[in-house]
Design a protein around this nucleic acid. Structure first.
Lengths: 269, 269
DNA sequence: GAGTGGTCTAGACCACCGA
DNA sequence: CGGTGGTCTAGACCACTCT
Protein backbone atom coordinates (compact mmCIF):
# COMPACT_ATOMS: atom_id res chain seq x y z
CA UNK A 1 0.00 0.00 0.00
CA UNK A 2 1.06 3.44 -0.72
CA UNK A 3 0.22 6.44 1.48
CA UNK A 4 -2.72 5.63 3.74
CA UNK A 5 -1.97 2.70 5.99
CA UNK A 6 -5.44 1.84 7.26
CA UNK A 7 -6.94 1.30 3.82
CA UNK A 8 -6.32 -1.89 1.90
CA UNK A 9 -8.44 -1.58 -1.20
CA UNK A 10 -7.52 0.30 -4.34
CA UNK A 11 -3.78 0.20 -4.66
CA UNK A 12 -3.30 -2.95 -2.64
CA UNK A 13 -1.22 -5.69 -4.29
CA UNK A 14 -3.86 -8.28 -3.48
CA UNK A 15 -7.09 -7.53 -1.67
CA UNK A 16 -10.29 -9.48 -1.80
CA UNK A 17 -13.42 -7.42 -2.08
CA UNK A 18 -14.83 -4.18 -3.52
CA UNK A 19 -16.24 -2.97 -6.81
CA UNK A 20 -12.99 -1.66 -8.26
CA UNK A 21 -10.06 -3.92 -9.12
CA UNK A 22 -7.45 -1.49 -10.41
CA UNK A 23 -4.00 -2.76 -9.72
CA UNK A 24 -3.45 0.36 -11.83
CA UNK A 25 -0.79 2.94 -12.13
CA UNK A 26 2.37 0.96 -11.83
CA UNK A 27 5.12 1.28 -14.38
CA UNK A 28 6.22 -1.98 -12.86
CA UNK A 29 8.89 -2.83 -15.43
CA UNK A 30 11.79 -3.02 -13.03
CA UNK A 31 13.52 -0.75 -10.52
CA UNK A 32 10.90 1.82 -9.50
CA UNK A 33 7.32 0.70 -8.90
CA UNK A 34 5.96 4.23 -9.59
CA UNK A 35 2.94 4.31 -7.37
CA UNK A 36 0.26 6.85 -7.93
CA UNK A 37 -1.77 8.55 -5.23
CA UNK A 38 -5.13 7.14 -4.32
CA UNK A 39 -7.07 10.15 -5.51
CA UNK A 40 -5.50 9.81 -8.96
CA UNK A 41 -6.71 6.24 -9.14
CA UNK A 42 -10.16 7.33 -8.07
CA UNK A 43 -10.05 10.04 -10.71
CA UNK A 44 -9.17 7.43 -13.32
CA UNK A 45 -12.03 5.20 -12.20
CA UNK A 46 -14.52 8.05 -12.39
CA UNK A 47 -13.16 9.05 -15.79
CA UNK A 48 -13.75 5.51 -17.00
CA UNK A 49 -17.37 5.73 -15.90
CA UNK A 50 -17.69 9.02 -17.75
CA UNK A 51 -16.14 7.62 -20.88
CA UNK A 52 -18.22 4.45 -20.82
CA UNK A 53 -21.37 6.55 -20.60
CA UNK A 54 -22.38 5.19 -17.22
CA UNK A 55 -23.29 8.80 -16.45
CA UNK A 56 -24.27 10.83 -19.50
CA UNK A 57 -23.51 14.50 -20.24
CA UNK A 58 -25.74 16.78 -18.20
CA UNK A 59 -26.60 14.03 -15.70
CA UNK A 60 -25.97 14.01 -12.00
CA UNK A 61 -23.21 11.71 -10.82
CA UNK A 62 -23.33 9.99 -7.41
CA UNK A 63 -22.61 12.15 -4.41
CA UNK A 64 -19.18 12.34 -2.86
CA UNK A 65 -20.20 10.26 0.12
CA UNK A 66 -21.71 7.58 -2.08
CA UNK A 67 -18.59 7.40 -4.25
CA UNK A 68 -16.45 7.32 -1.13
CA UNK A 69 -18.43 4.32 0.07
CA UNK A 70 -18.27 2.64 -3.30
CA UNK A 71 -14.50 3.02 -3.59
CA UNK A 72 -13.86 2.47 0.10
CA UNK A 73 -11.96 5.70 0.57
CA UNK A 74 -12.66 8.85 2.54
CA UNK A 75 -14.83 11.63 1.21
CA UNK A 76 -11.79 13.90 1.12
CA UNK A 77 -10.06 11.64 -1.35
CA UNK A 78 -13.07 11.50 -3.64
CA UNK A 79 -13.32 15.26 -3.30
CA UNK A 80 -9.78 15.79 -4.49
CA UNK A 81 -10.37 13.49 -7.46
CA UNK A 82 -13.51 15.38 -8.43
CA UNK A 83 -11.74 18.70 -7.93
CA UNK A 84 -9.35 17.75 -10.68
CA UNK A 85 -12.10 16.50 -12.94
CA UNK A 86 -13.84 19.83 -12.48
CA UNK A 87 -10.62 21.67 -13.29
CA UNK A 88 -10.38 19.56 -16.46
CA UNK A 89 -13.92 20.56 -17.39
CA UNK A 90 -15.10 16.98 -17.37
CA UNK A 91 -17.53 17.64 -14.58
CA UNK A 92 -19.33 20.62 -13.03
CA UNK A 93 -19.98 21.09 -9.35
CA UNK A 94 -23.02 22.92 -8.05
CA UNK A 95 -23.30 23.53 -4.35
CA UNK A 96 -26.42 22.15 -2.81
CA UNK A 97 -27.30 20.17 -5.93
CA UNK A 98 -24.48 17.84 -6.79
CA UNK A 99 -21.88 17.13 -9.44
CA UNK A 100 -22.93 16.97 -13.07
CA UNK A 101 -21.28 15.57 -16.14
CA UNK A 102 -20.11 18.49 -18.25
CA UNK A 103 -21.81 19.08 -21.58
CA UNK A 104 -21.34 21.28 -24.62
CA UNK A 105 -25.03 22.21 -24.47
CA UNK A 106 -24.47 25.30 -22.36
CA UNK A 107 -23.87 28.95 -23.01
CA UNK A 108 -20.88 28.59 -20.73
CA UNK A 109 -19.21 25.99 -22.95
CA UNK A 110 -19.91 27.59 -26.32
CA UNK A 111 -16.92 29.90 -26.26
CA UNK A 112 -14.44 27.45 -24.86
CA UNK A 113 -13.31 26.45 -28.35
CA UNK A 114 -14.67 29.31 -30.45
CA UNK A 115 -12.33 32.20 -29.73
CA UNK A 116 -13.36 34.57 -32.51
CA UNK A 117 -15.37 37.42 -31.05
CA UNK A 118 -16.67 40.69 -32.51
CA UNK A 119 -14.53 43.78 -31.90
CA UNK A 120 -17.64 45.52 -30.63
CA UNK A 121 -20.79 44.22 -29.03
CA UNK A 122 -21.35 41.08 -27.04
CA UNK A 123 -19.97 37.72 -28.17
CA UNK A 124 -22.62 35.58 -29.78
CA UNK A 125 -22.81 32.38 -31.72
CA UNK A 126 -22.59 32.56 -35.53
CA UNK A 127 -25.02 31.03 -38.02
CA UNK A 128 -23.86 28.05 -40.03
CA UNK A 129 -24.38 27.36 -43.72
CA UNK A 130 -23.18 23.99 -44.90
CA UNK A 131 -21.44 23.91 -48.27
CA UNK A 132 -20.46 20.30 -48.45
CA UNK A 133 -20.79 17.09 -46.47
CA UNK A 134 -19.37 13.87 -47.86
CA UNK A 135 -17.63 10.63 -47.13
CA UNK A 136 -14.12 10.50 -48.53
CA UNK A 137 -10.83 8.72 -48.08
CA UNK A 138 -8.42 10.42 -45.73
CA UNK A 139 -5.53 12.26 -47.37
CA UNK A 140 -2.14 11.51 -45.84
CA UNK A 141 -1.90 14.67 -43.75
CA UNK A 142 -5.41 14.29 -42.36
CA UNK A 143 -4.84 10.63 -41.58
CA UNK A 144 -1.67 11.42 -39.72
CA UNK A 145 -3.26 14.08 -37.54
CA UNK A 146 -6.28 11.90 -36.76
CA UNK A 147 -4.18 8.84 -36.07
CA UNK A 148 -5.75 6.94 -38.96
CA UNK A 149 -4.33 5.12 -41.96
CA UNK A 150 -4.11 7.01 -45.21
CA UNK A 151 -7.20 6.15 -47.23
CA UNK A 152 -9.39 5.34 -44.22
CA UNK A 153 -12.96 6.60 -44.46
CA UNK A 154 -13.47 10.10 -43.09
CA UNK A 155 -16.31 12.55 -43.20
CA UNK A 156 -15.54 15.89 -44.77
CA UNK A 157 -17.60 18.94 -43.90
CA UNK A 158 -17.29 22.43 -45.27
CA UNK A 159 -19.28 25.34 -43.98
CA UNK A 160 -19.43 29.11 -43.71
CA UNK A 161 -20.31 30.84 -40.49
CA UNK A 162 -21.79 34.32 -40.31
CA UNK A 163 -22.05 36.88 -37.56
CA UNK A 164 -25.08 39.12 -38.08
CA UNK A 165 -25.39 37.82 -41.63
CA UNK A 166 -21.79 38.75 -42.43
CA UNK A 167 -19.87 35.66 -43.58
CA UNK A 168 -16.76 35.53 -41.42
CA UNK A 169 -15.51 31.97 -41.08
CA UNK A 170 -14.82 29.25 -43.61
CA UNK A 171 -14.30 25.90 -41.99
CA UNK A 172 -13.32 22.46 -43.18
CA UNK A 173 -13.77 19.54 -40.80
CA UNK A 174 -12.47 16.00 -41.02
CA UNK A 175 -13.98 13.34 -38.79
CA UNK A 176 -13.13 9.63 -38.49
CA UNK A 177 -15.77 7.77 -40.50
CA UNK A 178 -15.92 4.91 -38.02
CA UNK A 179 -16.94 7.09 -35.12
CA UNK A 180 -19.25 9.44 -36.96
CA UNK A 181 -20.97 6.86 -39.11
CA UNK A 182 -24.40 8.13 -40.12
CA UNK A 183 -23.55 11.80 -39.90
CA UNK A 184 -25.43 13.43 -42.78
CA UNK A 185 -25.99 16.93 -44.09
CA UNK A 186 -29.61 16.73 -42.93
CA UNK A 187 -28.64 16.00 -39.33
CA UNK A 188 -26.21 18.90 -39.40
CA UNK A 189 -28.63 21.38 -40.89
CA UNK A 190 -31.58 20.57 -38.69
CA UNK A 191 -29.41 20.66 -35.57
CA UNK A 192 -29.19 24.08 -33.97
CA UNK A 193 -26.33 24.96 -31.65
CA UNK A 194 -22.69 24.02 -31.44
CA UNK A 195 -21.53 21.01 -33.39
CA UNK A 196 -19.76 19.57 -30.37
CA UNK A 197 -23.17 19.31 -28.74
CA UNK A 198 -24.40 17.17 -31.61
CA UNK A 199 -21.28 15.00 -31.55
CA UNK A 200 -21.76 14.48 -27.85
CA UNK A 201 -25.42 13.48 -27.86
CA UNK A 202 -25.71 11.78 -31.23
CA UNK A 203 -22.37 10.02 -31.42
CA UNK A 204 -21.32 9.70 -27.81
CA UNK A 205 -18.06 11.45 -28.52
CA UNK A 206 -17.17 14.32 -26.26
CA UNK A 207 -14.38 16.75 -27.11
CA UNK A 208 -12.17 17.24 -24.08
CA UNK A 209 -9.38 19.47 -25.26
CA UNK A 210 -7.85 20.78 -28.47
CA UNK A 211 -4.51 21.91 -29.83
CA UNK A 212 -4.47 24.79 -32.27
CA UNK A 213 -1.90 26.27 -34.64
CA UNK A 214 -2.55 29.73 -36.02
CA UNK A 215 -1.12 31.54 -39.00
CA UNK A 216 -1.79 34.53 -41.22
CA UNK A 217 -2.47 33.71 -44.86
CA UNK A 218 -3.88 35.24 -48.03
CA UNK A 219 -7.43 34.33 -48.97
CA UNK A 220 -7.48 31.99 -51.94
CA UNK A 221 -10.16 32.30 -54.61
CA UNK A 222 -12.50 29.83 -52.93
CA UNK A 223 -12.41 31.44 -49.50
CA UNK A 224 -12.62 34.91 -51.01
CA UNK A 225 -15.84 34.04 -52.80
CA UNK A 226 -17.44 32.46 -49.76
CA UNK A 227 -16.52 35.40 -47.54
CA UNK A 228 -17.39 38.05 -50.16
CA UNK A 229 -13.94 39.58 -50.03
CA UNK A 230 -11.12 40.23 -52.45
CA UNK A 231 -8.79 37.37 -53.16
CA UNK A 232 -5.56 38.00 -51.25
CA UNK A 233 -7.21 39.54 -48.21
CA UNK A 234 -5.28 38.46 -45.10
CA UNK A 235 -7.06 35.79 -43.11
CA UNK A 236 -6.30 34.16 -39.83
CA UNK A 237 -5.80 30.45 -40.48
CA UNK A 238 -6.27 27.93 -37.70
CA UNK A 239 -5.59 24.22 -37.71
CA UNK A 240 -7.09 22.50 -34.73
CA UNK A 241 -7.04 18.90 -33.59
CA UNK A 242 -9.57 17.97 -30.91
CA UNK A 243 -9.25 15.05 -28.55
CA UNK A 244 -11.63 12.85 -26.55
CA UNK A 245 -10.92 10.62 -23.62
CA UNK A 246 -7.54 8.98 -23.69
CA UNK A 247 -6.10 11.80 -25.78
CA UNK A 248 -7.57 10.23 -28.87
CA UNK A 249 -7.76 12.69 -31.79
CA UNK A 250 -11.27 12.75 -33.25
CA UNK A 251 -11.53 15.94 -35.24
CA UNK A 252 -9.37 18.00 -37.53
CA UNK A 253 -10.72 21.45 -38.18
CA UNK A 254 -9.17 24.00 -40.50
CA UNK A 255 -10.62 27.47 -40.23
CA UNK A 256 -10.11 30.72 -42.10
CA UNK A 257 -11.23 33.73 -40.13
CA UNK A 258 -11.91 37.19 -41.48
CA UNK A 259 -10.56 39.54 -38.85
CA UNK A 260 -11.60 42.96 -40.02
CA UNK A 261 -14.41 43.27 -37.49
CA UNK A 262 -13.56 40.32 -35.29
CA UNK A 263 -10.52 39.08 -33.44
CA UNK A 264 -9.19 35.94 -31.87
CA UNK A 265 -9.28 36.42 -28.13
CA UNK A 266 -6.78 34.66 -25.93
CA UNK A 267 -6.02 34.84 -22.24
CA UNK A 268 -2.48 34.08 -21.13
CA UNK A 269 -2.38 32.85 -17.56
CA UNK B 1 -17.11 34.31 12.23
CA UNK B 2 -17.72 32.44 9.11
CA UNK B 3 -17.01 28.77 8.60
CA UNK B 4 -14.70 27.51 11.36
CA UNK B 5 -16.23 27.96 14.80
CA UNK B 6 -13.17 27.40 16.99
CA UNK B 7 -11.04 30.07 15.34
CA UNK B 8 -11.57 33.73 16.09
CA UNK B 9 -8.84 35.50 14.18
CA UNK B 10 -8.96 36.41 10.55
CA UNK B 11 -12.54 37.04 9.61
CA UNK B 12 -13.68 37.91 13.11
CA UNK B 13 -15.69 41.13 13.42
CA UNK B 14 -13.54 42.25 16.31
CA UNK B 15 -10.74 40.18 17.75
CA UNK B 16 -7.76 41.43 19.68
CA UNK B 17 -4.50 39.78 18.75
CA UNK B 18 -2.58 38.35 15.81
CA UNK B 19 -0.46 39.68 12.98
CA UNK B 20 -3.23 39.94 10.40
CA UNK B 21 -6.09 42.43 10.74
CA UNK B 22 -8.14 41.83 7.62
CA UNK B 23 -11.77 42.50 8.27
CA UNK B 24 -11.57 41.89 4.52
CA UNK B 25 -13.81 40.43 1.93
CA UNK B 26 -17.14 41.91 2.77
CA UNK B 27 -19.24 43.64 0.15
CA UNK B 28 -20.93 45.09 3.22
CA UNK B 29 -23.05 47.68 1.41
CA UNK B 30 -26.38 46.42 2.65
CA UNK B 31 -28.37 43.18 2.55
CA UNK B 32 -25.78 40.43 2.11
CA UNK B 33 -22.52 40.55 4.04
CA UNK B 34 -20.77 38.33 1.45
CA UNK B 35 -18.24 36.51 3.55
CA UNK B 36 -15.27 34.87 1.95
CA UNK B 37 -13.70 31.60 3.03
CA UNK B 38 -10.71 31.68 5.33
CA UNK B 39 -8.32 30.25 2.78
CA UNK B 40 -9.21 33.05 0.37
CA UNK B 41 -8.27 35.59 2.99
CA UNK B 42 -5.01 33.76 3.66
CA UNK B 43 -4.39 33.74 -0.08
CA UNK B 44 -4.96 37.48 -0.19
CA UNK B 45 -2.56 38.03 2.71
CA UNK B 46 0.16 35.95 1.08
CA UNK B 47 -0.43 37.76 -2.20
CA UNK B 48 0.10 41.06 -0.41
CA UNK B 49 3.43 39.83 0.90
CA UNK B 50 4.39 38.80 -2.60
CA UNK B 51 3.36 42.13 -4.05
CA UNK B 52 5.14 44.13 -1.36
CA UNK B 53 8.32 42.25 -2.06
CA UNK B 54 8.54 40.71 1.40
CA UNK B 55 9.57 37.57 -0.47
CA UNK B 56 11.30 38.22 -3.77
CA UNK B 57 11.02 36.23 -7.01
CA UNK B 58 13.00 33.00 -6.77
CA UNK B 59 13.11 33.09 -2.99
CA UNK B 60 11.76 30.55 -0.56
CA UNK B 61 8.65 31.55 1.31
CA UNK B 62 7.93 30.35 4.86
CA UNK B 63 6.81 26.76 5.23
CA UNK B 64 3.17 25.83 5.46
CA UNK B 65 3.38 25.10 9.16
CA UNK B 66 5.06 28.41 9.86
CA UNK B 67 2.45 30.33 7.88
CA UNK B 68 -0.27 28.36 9.63
CA UNK B 69 1.17 29.47 12.95
CA UNK B 70 1.54 33.06 11.81
CA UNK B 71 -2.04 33.30 10.59
CA UNK B 72 -3.45 31.15 13.36
CA UNK B 73 -5.12 28.69 11.04
CA UNK B 74 -4.57 25.03 10.30
CA UNK B 75 -1.96 23.83 7.86
CA UNK B 76 -4.71 22.53 5.61
CA UNK B 77 -6.11 26.01 5.17
CA UNK B 78 -2.72 27.48 4.29
CA UNK B 79 -2.22 24.58 1.93
CA UNK B 80 -5.41 25.34 0.05
CA UNK B 81 -4.42 28.99 -0.24
CA UNK B 82 -0.99 28.10 -1.60
CA UNK B 83 -2.55 25.55 -3.95
CA UNK B 84 -4.43 28.35 -5.63
CA UNK B 85 -1.40 30.61 -5.74
CA UNK B 86 0.51 27.81 -7.43
CA UNK B 87 -2.33 27.34 -9.92
CA UNK B 88 -2.13 31.08 -10.63
CA UNK B 89 1.60 30.74 -11.27
CA UNK B 90 2.45 33.15 -8.48
CA UNK B 91 4.33 30.51 -6.57
CA UNK B 92 6.03 27.19 -7.26
CA UNK B 93 5.97 24.19 -4.97
CA UNK B 94 8.84 21.74 -4.75
CA UNK B 95 8.42 18.70 -2.63
CA UNK B 96 11.07 18.31 0.04
CA UNK B 97 12.37 21.84 -0.50
CA UNK B 98 9.58 24.31 -0.02
CA UNK B 99 7.52 26.88 -1.84
CA UNK B 100 9.25 29.49 -4.00
CA UNK B 101 8.12 32.78 -5.42
CA UNK B 102 7.64 32.31 -9.16
CA UNK B 103 10.02 34.11 -11.49
CA UNK B 104 10.32 34.74 -15.20
CA UNK B 105 13.97 33.66 -15.05
CA UNK B 106 13.26 30.06 -15.91
CA UNK B 107 13.10 28.02 -19.06
CA UNK B 108 9.70 26.90 -17.82
CA UNK B 109 8.30 30.44 -17.83
CA UNK B 110 9.77 31.62 -21.12
CA UNK B 111 7.03 30.21 -23.30
CA UNK B 112 4.13 31.16 -21.10
CA UNK B 113 3.64 34.42 -23.00
CA UNK B 114 5.60 33.78 -26.18
CA UNK B 115 3.44 31.43 -28.19
CA UNK B 116 5.17 31.66 -31.54
CA UNK B 117 7.08 28.45 -32.19
CA UNK B 118 8.92 27.08 -35.23
CA UNK B 119 6.96 24.67 -37.45
CA UNK B 120 9.87 22.29 -37.18
CA UNK B 121 12.52 21.80 -34.55
CA UNK B 122 12.43 22.55 -30.86
CA UNK B 123 11.01 25.82 -29.54
CA UNK B 124 13.74 28.25 -28.59
CA UNK B 125 14.05 31.84 -27.58
CA UNK B 126 14.62 34.44 -30.34
CA UNK B 127 17.36 37.07 -30.47
CA UNK B 128 16.36 40.68 -29.94
CA UNK B 129 17.53 43.73 -31.85
CA UNK B 130 16.31 47.03 -30.51
CA UNK B 131 15.28 49.61 -33.08
CA UNK B 132 14.05 52.37 -30.83
CA UNK B 133 13.71 53.20 -27.15
CA UNK B 134 12.33 56.55 -26.12
CA UNK B 135 10.21 58.46 -23.68
CA UNK B 136 7.04 59.83 -25.23
CA UNK B 137 3.59 61.04 -24.30
CA UNK B 138 0.92 58.38 -24.38
CA UNK B 139 -1.42 58.48 -27.36
CA UNK B 140 -5.09 58.21 -26.48
CA UNK B 141 -5.47 54.54 -27.34
CA UNK B 142 -2.36 53.51 -25.43
CA UNK B 143 -3.38 55.59 -22.43
CA UNK B 144 -6.79 53.98 -22.36
CA UNK B 145 -5.42 50.44 -22.44
CA UNK B 146 -2.80 51.16 -19.78
CA UNK B 147 -5.26 52.98 -17.56
CA UNK B 148 -3.31 56.25 -17.87
CA UNK B 149 -4.26 59.74 -18.89
CA UNK B 150 -3.68 60.77 -22.47
CA UNK B 151 -0.34 62.55 -22.61
CA UNK B 152 1.16 60.78 -19.58
CA UNK B 153 4.78 59.78 -19.92
CA UNK B 154 5.32 56.32 -21.37
CA UNK B 155 8.32 54.43 -22.62
CA UNK B 156 8.15 53.27 -26.20
CA UNK B 157 10.25 50.35 -27.35
CA UNK B 158 10.51 48.89 -30.81
CA UNK B 159 12.44 45.77 -31.62
CA UNK B 160 12.85 42.92 -34.06
CA UNK B 161 13.22 39.34 -32.94
CA UNK B 162 14.91 36.67 -34.99
CA UNK B 163 14.84 32.89 -34.90
CA UNK B 164 18.11 31.43 -36.23
CA UNK B 165 19.02 34.83 -37.66
CA UNK B 166 15.71 35.06 -39.56
CA UNK B 167 13.81 38.20 -38.54
CA UNK B 168 10.33 37.02 -37.59
CA UNK B 169 8.75 39.37 -35.10
CA UNK B 170 8.34 43.13 -35.01
CA UNK B 171 7.24 44.38 -31.66
CA UNK B 172 6.21 47.72 -30.21
CA UNK B 173 5.95 48.05 -26.45
CA UNK B 174 4.42 50.79 -24.35
CA UNK B 175 5.24 50.95 -20.65
CA UNK B 176 4.03 53.42 -18.00
CA UNK B 177 6.88 55.92 -17.51
CA UNK B 178 6.30 56.17 -13.79
CA UNK B 179 6.90 52.49 -13.16
CA UNK B 180 9.72 51.97 -15.62
CA UNK B 181 11.61 55.16 -14.92
CA UNK B 182 15.25 54.68 -15.82
CA UNK B 183 14.70 52.00 -18.43
CA UNK B 184 17.23 52.75 -21.17
CA UNK B 185 18.34 51.20 -24.41
CA UNK B 186 21.61 50.20 -22.80
CA UNK B 187 19.91 48.25 -20.03
CA UNK B 188 17.79 46.47 -22.59
CA UNK B 189 20.65 45.59 -24.89
CA UNK B 190 23.01 44.34 -22.23
CA UNK B 191 20.31 42.25 -20.63
CA UNK B 192 20.05 38.75 -22.00
CA UNK B 193 16.89 36.72 -21.60
CA UNK B 194 13.20 37.52 -21.53
CA UNK B 195 12.22 41.12 -20.95
CA UNK B 196 9.77 40.13 -18.23
CA UNK B 197 12.76 38.89 -16.26
CA UNK B 198 14.35 42.31 -16.44
CA UNK B 199 11.11 44.04 -15.49
CA UNK B 200 10.81 41.75 -12.52
CA UNK B 201 14.30 42.14 -11.10
CA UNK B 202 15.10 45.70 -12.12
CA UNK B 203 11.73 47.35 -11.66
CA UNK B 204 9.97 45.11 -9.19
CA UNK B 205 7.07 44.66 -11.56
CA UNK B 206 5.98 41.12 -12.23
CA UNK B 207 3.63 40.25 -15.08
CA UNK B 208 0.91 37.96 -13.81
CA UNK B 209 -1.41 37.47 -16.74
CA UNK B 210 -2.16 38.93 -20.13
CA UNK B 211 -5.05 39.38 -22.51
CA UNK B 212 -4.37 39.11 -26.22
CA UNK B 213 -6.28 39.95 -29.38
CA UNK B 214 -5.09 38.44 -32.64
CA UNK B 215 -5.75 39.41 -36.22
CA UNK B 216 -4.41 38.83 -39.70
CA UNK B 217 -3.10 41.94 -41.48
CA UNK B 218 -0.97 42.98 -44.41
CA UNK B 219 2.61 43.99 -43.71
CA UNK B 220 3.05 47.73 -44.07
CA UNK B 221 6.22 49.18 -45.56
CA UNK B 222 7.97 49.51 -42.22
CA UNK B 223 7.34 45.98 -41.05
CA UNK B 224 8.13 44.60 -44.48
CA UNK B 225 11.55 46.22 -44.43
CA UNK B 226 12.38 45.02 -40.95
CA UNK B 227 11.30 41.49 -41.71
CA UNK B 228 12.87 41.41 -45.19
CA UNK B 229 9.61 40.53 -46.84
CA UNK B 230 7.38 42.00 -49.50
CA UNK B 231 5.01 44.71 -48.45
CA UNK B 232 1.54 43.19 -48.24
CA UNK B 233 2.67 39.83 -46.94
CA UNK B 234 0.09 38.54 -44.45
CA UNK B 235 1.21 38.86 -40.84
CA UNK B 236 -0.29 37.73 -37.61
CA UNK B 237 -0.97 40.83 -35.53
CA UNK B 238 -1.28 40.60 -31.78
CA UNK B 239 -2.26 43.26 -29.28
CA UNK B 240 -1.52 42.21 -25.75
CA UNK B 241 -2.10 43.95 -22.43
CA UNK B 242 -0.22 42.50 -19.47
CA UNK B 243 -1.25 42.90 -15.85
CA UNK B 244 0.50 42.82 -12.49
CA UNK B 245 -0.95 42.37 -9.03
CA UNK B 246 -4.38 43.86 -8.59
CA UNK B 247 -5.13 43.48 -12.29
CA UNK B 248 -3.22 46.64 -12.99
CA UNK B 249 -2.26 46.97 -16.68
CA UNK B 250 1.47 47.68 -17.02
CA UNK B 251 2.38 46.82 -20.58
CA UNK B 252 0.89 47.19 -24.02
CA UNK B 253 2.62 45.12 -26.63
CA UNK B 254 1.78 45.09 -30.32
CA UNK B 255 3.42 42.34 -32.30
CA UNK B 256 3.58 41.43 -35.97
CA UNK B 257 4.53 37.82 -36.55
CA UNK B 258 5.75 36.30 -39.76
CA UNK B 259 4.10 32.90 -39.93
CA UNK B 260 5.63 31.26 -42.94
CA UNK B 261 7.92 29.01 -40.89
CA UNK B 262 6.40 29.59 -37.48
CA UNK B 263 2.97 29.40 -35.95
CA UNK B 264 1.10 30.60 -32.93
CA UNK B 265 0.49 27.61 -30.70
CA UNK B 266 -2.54 27.49 -28.46
CA UNK B 267 -3.99 24.82 -26.23
CA UNK B 268 -7.74 24.85 -25.65
CA UNK B 269 -8.66 23.18 -22.37
C1' DG C 1 -35.36 19.07 7.11
C1' DA C 2 -32.53 16.21 4.43
C1' DG C 3 -29.01 16.04 1.11
C1' DT C 4 -25.41 18.18 -1.53
C1' DG C 5 -20.98 20.38 -2.10
C1' DG C 6 -17.71 23.76 0.56
C1' DT C 7 -14.74 24.88 4.44
C1' DC C 8 -11.93 23.91 8.45
C1' DT C 9 -9.43 21.26 11.73
C1' DA C 10 -6.29 17.73 13.73
C1' DG C 11 -3.43 14.16 13.32
C1' DA C 12 -1.09 10.51 10.89
C1' DC C 13 2.11 8.84 7.61
C1' DC C 14 4.68 9.09 3.02
C1' DA C 15 8.03 10.90 -0.52
C1' DC C 16 11.54 13.83 -1.27
C1' DC C 17 15.50 16.82 -0.19
C1' DG C 18 19.62 18.39 1.88
C1' DA C 19 22.96 18.32 5.59
C1' DC D 1 18.32 12.86 10.25
C1' DG D 2 14.92 16.72 10.37
C1' DG D 3 12.28 19.65 7.47
C1' DT D 4 9.32 20.31 3.45
C1' DG D 5 5.45 19.47 0.66
C1' DG D 6 2.00 15.49 -0.57
C1' DT D 7 -1.57 12.23 0.68
C1' DC D 8 -5.19 10.30 3.52
C1' DT D 9 -8.50 10.06 7.13
C1' DA D 10 -12.29 11.38 10.34
C1' DG D 11 -15.32 14.41 12.03
C1' DA D 12 -17.41 18.92 12.51
C1' DC D 13 -20.00 22.67 10.80
C1' DC D 14 -21.55 25.96 6.98
C1' DA D 15 -24.01 27.41 2.64
C1' DC D 16 -27.01 26.20 -0.69
C1' DT D 17 -31.03 23.77 -2.98
C1' DC D 18 -35.08 21.37 -3.14
C1' DT D 19 -39.13 19.31 -1.19
Amino acid sequence: MNPAPPNPTVNAPASGAAASPTPAASGSAAGSPTFSPLYQQIKALITQSLQSGEWKPGELIPSEVELAGRFKVSQGTVRKAIDELAADNLVMRRQGKGTFVATHHEARAHFRFLRLVPDEGVPHYPESKFIDVRRVRAPADVARLLDLKSGDAVIFIKRVQSFDAVPTIVEELWLPGLIFKGLTAERLVEYKGPMYGLFETEFGTRMIRASEQIRAVCADAGAAELLHIASGTPLLCSERVSFTYGDKPVELRRGWYLTTRHHYQNELN
